[in-house]
Amino acid sequence: MFLINCPYCGERDQAEFSCGGEAHIARPKNPPELSDDQWAEYLFLRKNEKGVHYERWNHEYGCRQWFNLARNTATDEILAIYKMGEAPPKLKANIPATPSGEPSIGSGNSSTSKKDRF
């Protein structure tokens, strides 16, 4: 569990929020012309990134506003929070070593403090 800095309410417990999945997936402008594969891409295919993941969150048990969030899915570190309609910031994330060159704590479980990063 982590804290999320809601752009409208400030820092709150993550349990107050719900994740709305990958952000910046635009609904196709020309639905009747889309092939089945293009529909599948829009509806089902996801980046499922290990690293920087841009996603939508809703402050469900708070102000109920939607906003965007960039998170490193390998560590859960929140890298940026920005409002709906804004362009995603360009970010880089450190991916922790996987079990073959693993740190002292479990795979992906590195803390976000600088000295423990890889």
Binding site: Q14, S18, E55, T73, A74, D76, G106, G108, N109
Partner: peptide, 13 residues
């Protein structure tokens, strides 16, 4: 958990 993650841990809630 309700979000994509590769951390092999989850929320206490």
């Amino acid at each position: 958990d309700g979000y994509t993650s590769y951390t092999q841990r989850g929320g206490f809630n």
